[in-house]
Amino acid sequence: MNAVMKHRLFWPVVVLLALILVNTLSRPSFVSITVQDGRLYGSLIDILRNSAPLMLVALGMTLVIATRGIDLSVGAVMAVSGAVALQIIQDSGDAANPSVLAVAIGAGLLAGLACGLWNGFLIAVLGIQPIIATLVLMLAGRGIALLITRGFITTINSDPYKFMAQGYVVGLPFAFYVSLAAIAIVAVIERRTALGVLTEAVGINPEASRLAGVRARGIIWGAYAASGLLAGFAGLLYSSNIMAADANAAGLYIELDAILAVVLGGTSLAGGTFSLAGTVVGVFTIQTLKSTITFLGVPPAVTPVFMAAVVVLVVLIQSSRFRRWVGRLGGRLSVRSAQPVERTEVAS
């Protein structure tokens, strides 16, 4: 039991289960899964499906954060890749043609990769601070996307393209399989080769790892390229979900959700040791929190406060120092309640 509690994923998982429990208590239908037209249907399935873009972005963000960096441009990169893909499909006039779709998807991914390479170049080669370097694309990216879509929301009608985010395979959403594949690929590359350890080494002490013979430049560049590519794919999923390239709204503020997911999963923003499993749990936590707002019927005006309060609570629960402090305080309070002390209020 103690070993389970000491595991670093213990508290993130507890938080996720607690959120699901709160929803279920408010409405038991939250955990019910029914079969609808040969596929599974329910809130939990919606969470699996809708979390896919955030999952891809957060995986890339984990790698970048492990190198002691940050990628603020992911949302804008999503807008660019979606705009590129949909504009190609729309301009072709043949939305169901497989080769057109392959070109569109390939171009969208390439656009994402190119954005990532650009970020990596600024950071790893020119030595610009990550927050500034990626801020450039965060601001410019949406402009580029708007330029591509000519200021409009590009819409298409294409069943194969729609399948990416809205299709089902063996009862489960296709987008969920995309998440799984991305998790597996990143995990294998990082954990079954030395790359993960080298990434952590660069994140913990770039100078020491360079002196030890680690090619920090290539590893950092690679992390941003991976982040860009994953964000590019997330952009395709986003556009496939609504069958439209919305340059202004695609991936808006997703960089913040991704950073939050990484942190909730127990990866430190200071770089170094990272946990992919933690990030996965973090992503599901955030997505569940979003459905919680609808499920509990939190009024829109207080939604940001509600979100913030839950996040603060979650982060506190995960802090071992805070837990110890609460434990001690709880002990002291139970002693004190035996002999109540009169207190005077002091107006501030």
């Binding site: 409405r27 239908s29 939250f30 329910g42 809130s43 919606d46 809708n50 929301i153 986003y238 979900n241 609504i242 439209a244 919305d246 709204a249 695609a250 808006l252 979003k290 459905s291 707002i293 609808t294 499920f295 019927g297 829109p300 939604t303």
Partner: peptide, 25 residues
């Protein structure tokens, strides 16, 4: 039954509507 913000965007409109449908069927 319920009133939530969808931020004037398609994606949020979709997610929130999914929640409504799960909740009220």
């Amino acid at each position: 039954l319920a009133s939530q913000t969808g931020n004037f965007t398609r994606a949020d409109g979709k997610t929130v509507m999914e929640g409504f449908l799960q909740k009220y069927g």
